[in-house]
Design a protein around this nucleic acid. Structure first.
Lengths: 220, 220, 220, 220
DNA sequence: AATGAATGAGTTTTCATTCAT
DNA sequence: TATGAATGAAAACTCATTCAT
């Protein structure tokens, strides 16, 4: 990602910061654009305008449109990983640990719907936008969480709190599914149920439902 | 555009069929194109070529690209509704009924990934492609399923088979979520877990997991 | 013009009339369309729709778009000629005769702005739409009027009512100019003078001005 | 689009000039195209080719085809206004002043047939291309001339040189009419009179006729 | 690094005309 | 003759990218 960061020397500090700020502004604008329109539907000029920079800046900093897409995507995965506070699960009761994990996933998904939209775009194109490097980041981002789930699940099982048959990978998938679907399909599902799912109250209720649902399912 | 053309007179039967066939061919080609590329990324010429018609035919029959998108989308919802075999839930034990419901959703989602991709595109644009008419179809398509879930859930609760606190709308959402996410995010999740989720065996296993997971969660 | 009028026999009277009516309807619709949009800007489908016939009828009856334009144009010239009531100028005093001529031109131009618009289109294209046949009709349509002007002018001069130096061709041109310009430029001139020139009252006033202006100019 | 781009800093002078030159080239080419074919019949690619620019340049500088049309039109009105040499009518005898005015109108119309053709196109579409801004320019362009006519007419009347009843607005219209019609209808009228009205000699003769005709009409 | 302008290929849409019935 | 559908060429407009300054 940080491909071309020349100018790290002291004398050029100011410029470096400015450059970094420009990059960040572009990334933010690009995230908005890509998340609503996808890679194909996104418009370079719209991103530039929204970031209040000349469109040439995008090329200078990122090379081209799809490289920018990848940068945004990788940035999102990095943010996900960074957000994984190192949990002290060893000193937490499994039930509490599981609640914490589910809540974290829910909150991440709730707070970064744009990133999730990007991920969907990648999937829609069967990974065509995904470089080997990005694939690596996906794994790196997800691994800690997957390991946490495994850890808590194992401890919970051994304490007789969770059913023996539950598979951690499936659980991981299921937790992500119930959290993510709610946001990525909010508009059409709102049409089905006849009320706005993105109202704060509705979101809180959904979160409680999910946490309880997962824990209920895990009962031995 | 796109008005229902009925030619009840005999002499025009053949022509009607031809027109209807052209429309159907275009709809099918458009579904493929829109599902892989989204509305923005789809190419009208690609659709025309794939449908083996002159590209003007799309305009003649559907008006323009986004009207065609809507036609495809509504067609998909109609197909979903049509697929809802009239279930004889009154004579089915609640547990079996629930298994049947979850299985049906899973199979629908598995068999119509193109339609689900379209739905995601709609959501990504915050419902921008969704006309009032389409909204109505969404509701119409979902209603029978929602009613079935309510019915089975109520009966199961009264027989002491399901926990009292479960809300049918949330359950509907959850079932759809666990089924749908698996397919819409197969590519990136495969990267995380290190194996191809779309292998037939993996799909079967996932289905079993989901059915069991839902039933486990519903236990009183 | 009346190129393909087969079916003149008695037994097919009804059909002939229907065909004639269709032609007339198309011509009227085409006149509206061509006069507002010109040959290039006119749309065949718009004409067909406005005439409430299938667009193929235009081709059947007139061949193609520019042939239809010519038919409309020639029709207009024929109407102009037909309108020239055989004036009994020999028994009319020259001043009255001149008033009558100017009034007739004004009224023709006022009543057939669509035809005049067509003529402008022809001029804009430097006669590109004009066949030899049409040229002939132009002359045929204009000749009687030109002759009348010559006649009245000559008599008026010999009676000492009109200035000797006035040239009949120039007078013809001038009369047409002052009448026609008012209608063909009504919108922009309305913008200049700040009121709507096409109000009935404004038109009447303009006519009076023109008649007086011409007679004043002709004084010896 | 089309906003006035002023780069007051020195360093961008050259660039500004280049842009301005491109705009001017496009405007000139567009004037040619629009005047011969009208808005509807004009071809964007032909304009671009004739201006020797990429066709995107039209969109970059003017937005779209009809915005370009408006720009050309407004440009023409501005040129008309700019052409109005500040006449020293106060020190000119009214008869001479009137001759000068009529001659100026004739020469303007003779020299800018393209602009006049555009104006006709506007009128043909019942002012549809006329924005509020363009309307303002029309008025601004015409006002000085109208004021001059009023001034000369008033002075001439008070000196007993012109008839009292003549209305300045009508006179304005009449002058424009007799000058303009000759050029906008040259082709068809040539067909009527059987000689080419656009020959230099014919034009000179026509001018003399018009000047005399107007002055004759104004006699008390 | 930043800016306005330019490029060239592509994409949607339009349109006169023709075909089949 | 009348109709709906089809055709193929062209037209307007878009867009990622690059150039010159």
């Amino acid at each position: 990602m940080e491909a071309k960061r020349k100018h790290s020397e002291n004398g050029q500090r100011r410029q470096y910061d400015k450059s970094g700020r420009t990059r960040a502004t572009i990334l933010a604008a690009a995230l908005r654009e890509f998340s609503t329109h996808g890679l194909a539907g996104a418009r370079v000029d719209r991103i530039a305008k929204s970031a209040k920079v000349n469109n040439h800046a995008l090329y200078y900093h990122f090379g081209n449109k799809s490289a920018l897409f990848r940068a945004v995507l990788e940035n999102g995965y990095d943010a996900f990983r960074a957000r994984q506070a190192p949990r002290d699960l060893k000193n937490t009761p499994p039930l509490e640990g599981m609640v914490e994990i589910v809540s974290d996933v829910f909150e991440f998904v709730r707070d970064t719907p744009e990133h999730m939209a990007l991920v969907l775009d990648v999937n829609r194109n069967r990974g065509a936008h995904l470089t080997a490097d990005a694939s690596e980041r996906v794994r790196a981002a997800a691994s800690p969480l997957l390991r946490d789930i495994e850890f808590v699940l194992r401890r919970g099982k051994s304490l007789g709190l969770f059913a023996k048959h539950v598979n951690p990978e499936h659980l991981y998938l299921t937790i992500f599914a119930v959290c993510n679907f709610y946001f990525t399909n909010a508009y059409t599902v709102s049409a089905v149920v006849g009320r706005d799912l993105l109202q704060p109250g509705a979101i809180r209720t959904r979160k409680k439902h999910i946490v309880r649902f997962v824990l209920d399912a895990l009962r031995p």
